[in-house]
Design a binder for these strands. Structure first.
Length: 896
RNA sequence: GGGCGCGUAGCUCAGCUGGUUUAGAGCGCUACCCUUACAAGGUAGAUGUCACAGGUUCGAAUCCUGUCGCGCCCACCA
């Protein structure tokens, strides 16, 4: 007899259990003795984050894989860590010091960074604690942070190697600029959103015309969504085939307000259909225009400051914010009668992914990585199947991006991050602002690229050296994560043992940011793939389908849910409602599923363990003493073990869950436990109860780690101290028993139909019924005689007689289960005619199917051409159908 | 402009390498039950032209084509 609290209270259990695992050192794996390694690296949450449902889903999946593999006996490493999130963290700390009346620039770089580190020490591991509440079995001793010394060395190493290979350069290009954060962003960091904007039509006068009356003669109309950029216009482009503008060759235009002379260029990239077919060209503020500028040798006039205000080149507009300037310019154009009209215009506008400010395409000198040379291998390994995506469709998305990859802007004009390991020599280079130095590649005099600061200039020996002020994109450290966390660039044992890792679990949003780049980095720096399987799970959305986000206030806080229903219930619920890769629409009620299931498991276990006599459990199960129900449940357990394992192998977590749910609830609890109550004190039954419970606990452990451990600790004679390290169940061949499954179906069928009749005919629960069972086969008779006592208890009925072909009594209800006819004298009657016609219909249908298959198999061409296993499958199908037809016909005969 | 996903019971979704599952689950609903593990429970029950239209097939929720509706991602139409 074990003492188990009546109420299931996850709060009492979860922290206690986690602490005891921790104390035992169960999360740790030693690389020196890891014979059979399995490794997952965590997608590092950023230090400003708190646990949200996306994390909860992501980490539950990883923990399932890790716990499952651990139980299978592999030496598992789940590598945890966090990401410094350059821009986000800097913003957070800036906001914080603003509360104290301080400003970043006033504080200065060094002091500010001290503040950031302090902030990191204080709050940076919040999310790690939250992951522990979720139950994550990471090897916390190894926790890494992207700004750690080791990982910083990896970043420098990677930069230097790429530079030396000519894959890194610095130059002037149009990049996405966030005026609020004051930094460049990569293309991936600019989120495009459909915005209702305006398209403005403006007259650009032709040079030498005094009047502006006739369109295309006196003036040309251009259409633009960003009129403020006209301050930087240097040309107007039209399509050479556009006859409207053919006469303008040799002519010039005058830029309104600014009065600059504009060339007219002819370029086939201009779409004559859009707007007026005349495109104003601003090479410093638009990527397309930039390209045109390169092609036609145009000047670049940058009219904007870093904060999005107009600079001195903007003349009277200097100092205005870009949107303010837009209004102002429109006003001025109206006054000069150069403004024609504006119309509503839907278009995609980039927004900063950290602060959601509208991104400004802006000419700027930045560092870039040449991606094309890196992408080739990355494409190859996926096409060859060395890296597999689950679900497969993401492979296409990945390949499409990789095949159209563009260079990666990696410099950021912020302070929190890895400083670019480049030093410039003032002696060799003439510059006022270090930002102005172009970097062409290895061997350039006065530019030193290395792991450590140089003492003096290797070229001239001068000591007036200045480090590049910029830091690197956070993702420049993240893309090294699978090997930098294992010690790279040093040759470590852990790297040797655990790289390549086995699986990567992440969300779809991060494929380009992270997954693709990790693959390229792995291949470049390690000459090997970083992981074999990539599992992409869905995005967590609210019940209306909107992505959950803090700013929208539609989040469900996982910690609150854990507080209410427990981590196990949260995990079970999340996994149940997530089918492979499909987005998850979440609402609070969804967690009831897991809560109810945990409660059911708790109570069933309580029942089983309460009634145990420990001494009775000694020794193996006496197989000769097994009843039908015993054989049935053991066979079902085997089946469940197979299903769960297979589904986990295929990353079909929800299918694994539902197999477990069905087995535990609808087989073990609904039938086996109930029957076990009737059987009296049988030691064999007790052994089976515990054996199956043990299987259930182990199968459920990956998804519900806490409750299974808590119960496991109360199971006498358990196979290992912790369920966490217990052996993953294997099907036991000798217990697979198709006959037991068939016979049990009869029992269930008969009991159900009696209950059904009772409910249908409104016979009270208490009233005892008599039933007669008419069988046509002798073995059924024997079986039913054995089971007769069960009917009494399970269905509240007395079996009056069992015999071959008993005639149906008058005034009786009849039902059919398999070949067994059930008569219940109730005073009412129900016909079997309906049943007969149903079976007849079914038989006909099956016979038609059989004809089809026979035809197919009789077709020599098909048999010859089709692969062997397809033919075999058809044959199996045919046999199955034949059996079914035979069985149905027997049923029919039994009804006559 | 390309690509992808989704339209199945009142709700949320599984199922989709074609045939047994008489189309399932959870929630909700109806009736009856505190039967000594569980009312976060038990037993029984109702509800579906599997978006629409064609096609392939002996057979389609499942494969193909098209249409409609919803959603997402990518893209330099200013």
């Amino acid at each position: 007899m074990k003492d188990i609290p009546t109420k299931y209270d996850p709060r009492q259990i979860e922290e206690k259990i986690y602490a005891s695992w921790s104390k035992e050192g169960l999360f740790h794996v030693d690389e020196d003795s890891a014979a059979d390694p399995y490794c997952i690296v965590i997608p590092p949450p950023n230090i400003t984050g708190i646990l949200h449902m996306g994390h909860a889903l992501n980490n539950t999946i990883q923990d399932i894989l890790i716990r499952w593999k651990r139980m299978q006996g592999l030496d598992v490493l789940w590598m945890p860590g966090t990401d410094h999130a350059g821009i986000a963290t800097q913003n957070v700390v800036e906001r914080e010091i603003a509360g104290e009346g301080q400003k970043r620039r006033e504080l200065g770089r060094e002091k500010f960074l001290e503040k950031v580190w302090k902030w990191k020490e204080e709050y940076g591991s919040t999310i790690i604690h939250q992951l522990k509440r979720l139950g994550c079995s990471c090897d916390w001793q190894r926790t890494r942070f992207t700004m750690d010394e080791g990982l910083s060395n990896a970043v420098k190493e990677a930069f230097v190697r790429l530079y030396e290979d000519g894959l890194i350069y610095k130059g002037d290009y149009i990049i996405n600029w966030c005026p609020r954060c004051g930094t460049a962003l990569s293309d991936e960091e600019a989120e495009h959103r459909e915005v209702e904007g305006m398209l403005y039509y403006i007259k650009y006068p032709v040079k030498g015309k005094d009047r502006i009356e006739k369109e295309n003669e006196d003036y040309v109309v251009v259409a633009t969504t960003r009129p403020e950029t006209m301050l930087g216009d240097v040309a107007v482009a039209v399509n050479p085939k556009d006859s409207r503008y053919a006469h303008l060759k040799e002519k010039k235009l005058i830029l309104p307000i600014v009065k600059r002379e504009l060339r007219i260029i002819f370029d086939s990239d201009v779409d004559p259909e859009f707007g007026t077919g005349a495109l104003k060209v601003t090479p410093a503020h638009d990527p397309v225009d930039f390209e045109l500028g390169l092609k036609h040798g145009l000047e670049r006039v940058n009219v904007m400051n870093q904060d999005g205000t107009i600079n001195i080149l903007g003349g009277d507009y200097e100092g205005m914010d870009r949107f303010e300037c837009r209004e102002s310019i429109i006003e001025d154009l109206k006054q000069r009668r150069l403004f024609i009209r504006s119309e509503k215009h839907q278009h995609a506008v980039g927004h900063c992914y950290r602060c959601h400010t509208v991104v400004e395409p802006r000419l700027s000198k930045q560092w870039f990585v040449k991606m094309r040379p890196l992408a080739g291998e990355g494409i190859k390994v996926v096409k060859e199947g060395r890296i597999r995506f689950y679900p497969q469709r993401w492979m296409k998305v990945y390949l499409n991006w990789m095949e159209n990859i563009r260079d990666w802007c990696i410099s950021r004009q912020i302070w929190w991050g890895h400083r670019i390991p480049v030093w410039y020599c003032r002696g060799c280079l003439k510059y006022d602002n270090v930002r102005d130095v172009d970097t062409t590649g290895p061997g350039q005099k006065g530019v030193y690229v290395g792991l450590d600061p140089p003492d003096k200039c290797p070229n001239c020996g001068g000591v007036d050296l200045e480090q590049d002020p910029d830091v690197l994109d956070t993702w420049f450290s993240s893309w090294l994560w699978p090997f930098s966390t294992l010690g790279w660039p040093q040759r470590t044992k852990q790297l040797e043992v655990f790289y390549p890792t086995d699986a990567l679990v992440t969300a779809q949003e991060i494929i380009f940011f992270w997954v693709a780049r990790m693959i390229m980095a792995g291949l470049k720096f390690r000459k090997d793939i970083p992981f074999r399987d990539v599992y992409i799970h869905g995005t967590v959305r609210d019940s209306t389908g909107t992505k959950m986000s803090k700013s929208l206030g539609n989040v469900i806080d996982p910690l609150e849910v854990i507080q209410e229903v427990g981590s196990d219930a949260l995990r079970f619920s999340m996994i149940s409602i997530t089918s492979q890769g499909q987005d998850v629409f979440l609402s609070r009620e969804k967690f009831e599923l897991g809560r109810n299931f945990a409660n059911k498991l708790w109570n069933a276990s309580r029942y089983v363990l309460m009634n145990l006599d420990e001494t009775a459990l000694e020794g193996e199960i006496d197989e000769s003493d097994l009843t039908l129900a015993d054989r049935w449940i053991l066979s079902c357990l085997n089946d469940t073990v197979e299903k769960v394992t297979k589904n986990l192998e295929n990353y079909r977590f929800n299918d694994a869950n539902s197999a477990l749910y069905d087995f535990v609830w609808h087989k073990y609890c609904d039938w086996y436990l109930e029957i076990s109550k009737l059987a009296g004190n049988r030691d064999t039954a007790r052994k089976v109860l515990v054996r199956v419970l043990s299987g259930i606990l182990r199968l459920l452990h990956p998804v519900m780690p806490f409750i299974t451990e808590e119960i496991w600790q109360k199971v006498p004679a358990r196979s290992s101290e912790w369920v966490m390290t217990a052996e993953w169940p294997l099907p036991e061949e000798r217990y697979t028993d198709a006959e037991a499954v068939r016979d049990m179906e009869k029992l269930i069928g008969i009991v159900s139909s009696v209950r059904n009749a009772r409910a249908f005919w409104n016979v009270g629960q208490k009233a005892r019924l008599d039933i007669l069972l008419s069988v046509s086969a002798r073995e059924d008779k024997k079986l039913l005689e054995e089971l007769a006592p069960h009917f009494e208890k399970l269905a509240g009925c007395q079996v009056r007689s069992i015999g071959e072909d008993i005639p149906r009594p008058d005034q009786s209800v009849a039902a059919l289960v398999g070949k067994v006819k059930i008569f219940i004298p109730l005073g009412g009657t129900v016909d079997l005619e309906k049943e007969k016609s149903r079976i007849n219909k079914k038989v006909k249908e099956l016979e038609r199917c059989l004809q089809g298959i026979d035809k197919k198999l009789g077709n020599k061409a098909f048999v010859k051409k089709a692969p062997e296993d397809v033919v075999h499958k058809e044959e199996l199908k045919r046999d199955r159908f034949r059996e079914q037809v035979a069985a149905l016909k027997e049923n029919l005969a039994a009804l006559q």
